[in-house]
């Protein structure tokens, strides 16, 4: 089992290298120094020297601990039996994606959850699909695959314990858990 797991990681790492090499060949001028983010994903007209100021502007000086930071909201909610991201969810994901793309050393766990209705096993799968929907959007917005980890808890870790829609809507969610915060 461990050997298989190891092999899986090797395959994963080598495909990351392949992706990096591919973009290096196609668009060498777009490759940032760290190899993680394409410059095209940064706001237009912002050069490397003004990037720091822009960062401080949007996310503040304590982006992950300041309750007034746009990153303070870290939960994306979903409709019943759905993994479609709502417009509000998209905005929140985009905010976090910008921060993560600018800070490739920071990683986040995307923890998928479901409400209690129906099958526990199906809900485990559904909650993973929700977390993967968030992962996909973040990757498309320039977040490195290594910065994101998906874990599903299905309906096993509710935040609200009632048995009606007011509790269920809070439990159908993906939580963004920044490591160390």
């Amino acid at each position: 089992m461990n050997r298989k797991f190891g092999a899986f990681w090797l395959v994963g790492l080598s495909s990351l290298l392949l992706v990096a090499c591919g973009s290096l060949e196609q668009r060498p001028e777009d490759m940032p120094a760290d190899g993680g983010i394409a410059a095209g994903e940064l706001p237009a007209g912002e050069g490397a020297e003004s990037g720091g100021a822009q960062l401080g502007g949007e996310f503040g000086t304590a982006p992950l601990t300041d309750p007034a930071s746009p990153l303070a909201k870290r939960v994306i909610y979903f409709a019943f039996d759905s993994s479609d991201v709502t417009p509000e969810g998209r905005d929140l994901i985009a905010t976090h994606a910008r921060y993560l793309a600018q800070n490739p050393e920071i990683s986040v766990v995307l923890e998928g959850h479901a409400d209690e209705r129906g099958s526990r096993e199906y809900n485990l799968a559904l909650a993973e699909r929700r977390a993967k929907a968030v992962e996909r959007l973040m990757t498309l917005q320039g977040v490195g695959a290594r910065q994101l980890q998906v874990i599903s808890f299905g309906e096993e870790r509710p935040v609200a314990f009632g048995h009606d829609e007011s509790a269920w809507q809070l439990n159908r969610r993906v939580e963004l858990l920044y490591s160390g915060y």
Partner: peptide, 27 residues
């Protein structure tokens, strides 16, 4: 303990195998 979810085990009638759900290949 593959990557992704490991769940829904069910023993085969001969007890030698488990049917299960894995998302190691993406979903």
């Amino acid at each position: 303990e593959f990557a992704g979810i490991n769940s829904a085990p069910d023993f085969s009638p001969d007890g030698q195998r488990l049917a299960l759900t894995l998302s190691r290949d993406g979903n």
